[in-house]
C-alpha cells in the first residue's frame, strides 16, 4: 500500500474542508479526485503532503505515519499543490537544485531528465519570473517528479496549460503509474480524470461521496461525468449537506 487515509477530517474555522475521508492507493494506481471548487480536494492533498494539520484520522505513506513522521513519509512523495511553489528571483535550474538537495539519489542528470520530460530543458537558465503560467506549471511538475516518488500528488495539474501541455500531463501521469508509482490527481473536469485515472473518487461539500474503479464506472455509466452527477444526487438523497 502506497497511501492510506483512514477517516481523515480537516475542518477550517469557516466550517469548510474535508470530512471523514478514507481511501487507499496501490502502486501503479491513479486515483482521480473529481469535484467542484471547494469540495475538499486540495485540503485532502495538503493534509497528505503535511502542509496542514488534520483534526483527526490517520495518513500512512508507504507504511509510515505521515502525521507524526513527516520527514520519513514525505521522502516518498512528490507534490504539485495549487500553484507551483517557485522562487521567482532564481532560475528554473536553481529551483530544481534547491529541491534536489533533500535527496541523496538525485543528481544533475536527474534534474536534466525531468526538465526534458516536461519539455523545459531549453528554459533551464531562465528566471522563473520570465516564464508564462503554463511554463511554471511544467516546472512545478518537474519538481514533483524530481525524486522519482512512489506517491505523486498533483492538484489540478492541467491548470494554465495549453492542449500540448495537457497531453503532456496525461503522459507523465501514465508513465509514472507504469513505473510503479501511485498517483493522486485532482480535477474539476470529468474528462481529464477519465483520460488518465484507474480509479475515480467524487468529492463534494468536503465529503467523499463515491469511489470506484474506472472500468466499473464506465460499465455502469456512459461517462465519468454521469458517475459524478449520480454520486452527487445520491449524496443529497442520503442526507449529506451538499
Amino acid at each position: 500500500m502506497v497511501l492510506q487515509l483512514s477517516n481523515v477530517t480537516k475542518l477550517y474555522k469557516n466550517g469548510r474542508g474535508a470530512e471523514d475521508i478514507s481511501f487507499a492507493l496501490l502502486p501503479g494506481e491513479v486515483l482521480g479526485l473529481l469535484g467542484p471548487n471547494g469540495s475538499g480536494k486540495t485540503t485532502t492533498m495538503k493534509a497528505i503532503a503535511g502542509l496542514i494539520k488534520v483534526n483527526s484520522g490517520e495518513i500512512t505513506i508507504c507504511g509510515i505515519d505521515a502525521i507524526n513522521q513527516h520527514e520519513k513519509a514525505v521522502r516518498h512523495t512528490g507534490c504539485l499543490i495549487e500553484a507551483p511553489a517557485l522562487y521567482e528571483h532564481t532560475t528554473v535550474l536553481t529551483n530544481l537544485r534547491l529541491a534536489a538537495r533533500f535527496y541523496s539519489h538525485v543528481d544533475e542528470s536527474c534534474i536534466n531528465e525531468v526538465l526534458e520530460m516536461v519539455e523545459m530543458y531549453r528554459y533551464r537558465k531562465d528566471k522563473v519570473r520570465s516564464l508564462s503560467l503554463g511554463m511554471r506549471q511544467r516546472v512545478g511538475l518537474a519538481m514533483a517528479l524530481l525524486s522519482s516518488p512512489e506517491l505523486l500528488i498533483l492538484d489540478e495539474p492541467a491548470n494554465g496549460l495549453d492542449i500540448e501541455g495537457m497531453l503532456l500531463v496525461r503522459d507523465v501521469i501514465k508513465a509514472a503509474a507504469a513505473g510503479g508509482s501511485a498517483v493522486l490527481v485532482s480535477s474539476h473536469l470529468a474528462n481529464e480524470i477519465q483520460q488518465c485515472a484507474t480509479h475515480v473518487a467524487v468529492m463534494h461539500g468536503g465529503k467523499m461521496l463515491a469511489i470506484d474503479n474506472i472500468h466499473e464506472v464506465l460499465q455502469s455509466f456512459s461517462s465519468v461525468e454521469d458517475f459524478f452527477i449520480d454520486a452527487v444526487k445520491r449524496g443529497r438523497q442520503g442526507g449529506f449537506a451538499i
Partner: peptide, 17 residues
C-alpha cells in the same frame, strides 16, 4: 505570502529543522 514556503515543507525535512 508568496506561497513558496510549501516548496520546502513538502520536502523531507521536519518543520523545526
Amino acid at each position: 505570502a508568496e506561497h513558496t514556503m510549501k516548496a520546502m515543507i513538502c520536502r523531507p525535512v521536519e518543520r523545526w529543522k
